[in-house]
Amino acid sequence: MLRLPRFRLVEPRSYGEAAQLLAENGAGALDRSKGTPTLRVMLVAGGTDLFPNMKRRQFTPEVLISLARVRDASGIQRNGHLDISAGTTLSAIAHDPGIRERSTALAEAAEVVSTPQLRNMGTIGGNICLDTRCNWYDQSLFWRTAEGFCMKTNPDVVCRVATSSPRCLAVASADTVPALLVLGATVHFEDAEGGRDVALSELYREDGIRPMAMRQDEVLTDITLPEADGWRSTYLKMRDRNSFDFPVAAVAAAVRWDGTRVSEARVAITALGSRPQLVEDAARPLVGTTLDDVTIALAAEAVHKAARPLDNTSGTISQRKRAALVLTERALRSLRPA
């Protein structure tokens, strides 16, 4: 049986306490005594991403701060905007009728994460913080030893995907993120001193090792979506199997209808680079149109251009690039008035 490495588990009852524990245990500090450097302290919510990674020894933290017992860590509130606590499970989000109706892309994305069991365990906060993935990296300690490791765990080693790459090319793979991006989400962090709000679109960066502009001493606590009046949204995912699998290409799209014309539009992609991203060049041409085929083709072309898949997930580069284009077309077509 493949087992977790040893660690000390702490169970704070509040986010403030969690942030305090992060600070106390040297948030961000690397333990270099274990062959590959590893964070000394880490947060865990549902554990569906971190525990497999720990079993494969991609992380071997000394201290694990579980957010499972934080009070009021889960829940969905609506008062004009939509407030989702970070510890809300993906199942709860997928099954919430309000989200399904008004923030459709998010419900659709939450519903296609991995499997029912993992959606019962995994949280929206965890999905937002999902580690980037790469088939040179998401392998056991044995496999990576045979390979000689890679940049993501050992900064002095090359990137195996493209040996000349100055940065890690691991892939953003969280399903809910592009949905949240097109829905205009803001996320709230707390640290030992206080808190801050960040637009989700500002959170991610093109770096497989540190994909989020999030400090190691912060805890993600809430996600806020603005009023969704007039918006229609959807999320489409390409994967090998209809369950279990991470996306190999995915597109979220949202448009706001003003009569028969689109007044605002957003298109986001993931699994096509290290960063989930809004594709402005795809959204811009949509505004003022009726989502006619020509316009949609322009948007799809822009997504195709923005998609930069590499050979480090399932599927192939050309297949995934093409999928980005096709999924964009299909997503936008589905947003036309019935």
């Binding site: 088939n135 392998q139 496999w143 199997r241 369950s243 279990f244 399932s314």
Partner: peptide, 16 residues
């Protein structure tokens, strides 16, 4: 090196 030595990467079909 085996490219997909796991039940996630080696694609055995699911019910769906």
């Amino acid at each position: 090196l085996h490219k997909k030595p796991s039940l996630l990467d080696y694609k055995i079909p699911t019910s769906l």
